[in-house]
Nucleic acid binder design. Structure first.
Length: 360
RNA sequence: AGGGGUGUCGCCAAGCGGUAAGGCACUAGACUUUGACUCUAGUAUUCGUAGGUUCAAAUCCUGCCACCCCUG
């Protein structure tokens, strides 16, 4: 009896190739397409349609069944609500980390099991290893595409039956396989932007949810140099979008140093960037994979944002590992509250948590 | 009212008779399953304005306008 795998298909190359590989490996594959975002601003919801068309094409070519599910409500309640709340607090959230925890490995998992899945698969670039009764999340073979950062919040239960068919693949190979199979997605551009919402003018998008609350842009010394359109539109270390020109004595680019929520002021500087450096952070809501360390203090590596080199850090656990102080080996630029700190050793993703406070 | 100074792209700012540097902003791409960062490219037929001198003016001359100082 063939093992049944339910695969999350987005209509991109990665999940398309994952489907082909699973079929090749002799699994009984079912494709599931998620539609989690209802357009509210009139604009084209045609992308989701086009993506679903690709899913259909690929599934028909591979001769596997496919279904579509809609978790727009769950997405809104569990991901988007948090996203807006965080912005309202002046933080910079990472909705995609939650999207994985709450949707792709939430209702989707349930649905997959309901369809009789033995395994659940996605087109993520990351690996999975099972030993000693635990499931480990490992880094992808393609170091450049590694997506473990976004999966740092997954529990053992969620990972239990997960497969990542692309774990040993490099992007080029994936493209090549797509070509070989003649998949309609072979040359499709990688999708970017917030998961399910897609790439868009971020400022314009946020403006649908927040009133413009203008205020002063001031330098560290308190000199007013401009006007901002609302603090939620900016994030620490940001340069573009400030609209600030050069000054006679200092022609360097301006950047955001801090968001003063109480006074509705955006603090900026230019030139010396060391004001953005920090030496430690305090993280909350930490999820450890596969389980919390037995030592309350240890060294490992960490990333403070996706696509960053891993940094050497020292972790000091608090509250049974739910929270932690993380000290950096070297100063880090623009570590931002609301983002995730994700821990690694040489081979595995050890989990991660929300950056709640940053220490300079 | 008198004396001095300044007016070059949204912001700074070179140029000072030979046919508009540069930086920042901005725009567009690249990169990217968050937001950022980063990278590449583009961006003044025109120099406050009206005349004049000259083969040739942002650069010289004159009037006017605006702004900034100082003196009353």
């Amino acid at each position: 009896m063939k093992k049944k795998v339910v695969l999350a298909m987005s209509g991109g190359v990665d999940s398309s190739v994952a489907a082909a590989l699973l079929v090749e490996q002799g699994y009984d594959v079912i494709g599931l397409f998620m539609r989690n975002w209802e357009e509210e601003d009139g604009g084209g919801h045609c992308t989701a349609e086009a993506d679903y068309d690709d899913v259909k094409n690929v599934c028909n070519l591979l001769n596997i069944p496919y279904y579509t599910v809609n978790y727009a409500k769950q997405y809104k309640d569990k991901v988007f609500k948090y996203f807006l709340e965080e912005y309202a607090k002046g933080r910079t959230p990472n909705p995609d980390v939650l999207c994985n925890r709450e949707i792709k490995f939430g209702p989707f998992l349930t649905q997959a099991y309901a369809l009789g899945a033995d395994y659940i698969a996605t087109g993520h670039y990351c690996g999975i290893v099972r030993k000693n009764g635990f499931t480990y999340l490992t880094k992808a073979a393609d170091k450049d595409k590694d997506q473990t950062y976004f999966l740092n919040q997954l529990s053992q239960t969620q990972l239990k039956d997960v497969m990542f068919p692309l774990e040993n693949m490099v992007k080029n190979e994936v493209r090549a396989i797509a070509e070989k199979y003649g998949l309609s997605t072979a040359k499709k551009k990688d999708s970017t932007g917030i998961c399910f919402i897609g790439e868009r003018n971020f400022r314009e998008f946020l403006s649908n949810y927040f009133p413009n609350h203008k205020g002063d842009i001031v330098t560290i010394d308190g000199k007013v140099v401009g006007e901002h359109i609302g603090l939620m539109y900016y994030t620490i270390g940001q340069r573009r979008g400030l609209g600030l020109g050069g000054e006679k004595e200092n022609q360097n680019r301006w950047f955001v140093v801090e968001k003063d929520m109480t006074n509705n002021r955006l603090i900026v500087s230019h030139g010396d960037e060391s004001v953005l450096d920090s030496k430690a952070l305090f993280a909350t809501e930490i999820n450890w994979i596969p389980k919390v360390s037995e030592e309350s203090e240890f060294e490992c590596f960490a990333k403070f944002r996706y696509r960053q080199e891993e940094q050497k850090v020292k972790v000091k656990l608090e509250e049974a590992g739910d929270k932690a102080y993380v000290e950096f080996d070297t100063l880090q630029r623009a570590v931002t509250e609301g983002q995730y700190v994700v821990f690694y050793n040489e081979t595995d993703c050890l989990g991660g948590g929300v950056i709640d406070k940053v220490f300079k």
